[in-house]
């Protein structure tokens, strides 16, 4: 199976939005099989945020038919995000995924 969808809801071009976007693209490279990514800015498309019932931004929504899941936050902890969404990570470019160091 392929072509499942990850939707990222962000609010404008804030630092936190950009961080989440970058982290998402990094995730996308690691996820096997390929997934589609859609980015929605709630400031310009509030009606989509309303439809999806978004409170917090950034929110990553995994539109799974049986078990939809959401991750709130800037997605900086790649390993936990992958675990929660239930993806196997692939070492596409030869690098292993290392969990980011936790900030004190």
């Amino acid at each position: 199976m392929s072509g499942f969808l990850l939707r990222l809801y962000i609010a404008g071009r804030s630092a936190i939005s950009q961080r989440a976007e970058q982290n998402l693209f990094q995730l996308q490279r690691l996820i096997e099989p390929d997934c589609k990514v859609e980015i929605i800015d709630v400031v310009t498309r509030p009606e989509l945020a309303e439809q999806a019932g978004i409170l917090a931004t950034p929110t990553l929504s995994y539109e799974h038919p049986e078990r939809p899941r959401r991750v709130i936050g800037d997605l900086s902890d790649t390993k936990r995000v992958l675990e929660f969404l239930g993806f196997r990570a692939q070492e596409k470019d030869g690098r292993a995924i290392e969990p980011k160091e936790k900030n004190a």
């Binding site: 809801y9 609010a11 404008g12 804030s14 936190i16 709630v42 400031v43 945020a49 978004i54 409170l55 917090a56 931004t57 950034p58 929110t59 078990r67 939809p68 899941r69 959401r70 991750v71 709130i72 936050g73 800037d74 997605l75 900086s76 902890d77 936990r80 995000v81 929660f84």
Partner: peptide, 13 residues
């Protein structure tokens, strides 16, 4: 839905 908070966020949504 299942939901998890990881990292910083705001309520701009």
């Amino acid at each position: 839905k299942d939901e998890l908070v990881i990292g910083d966020f705001d309520l701009l949504g």
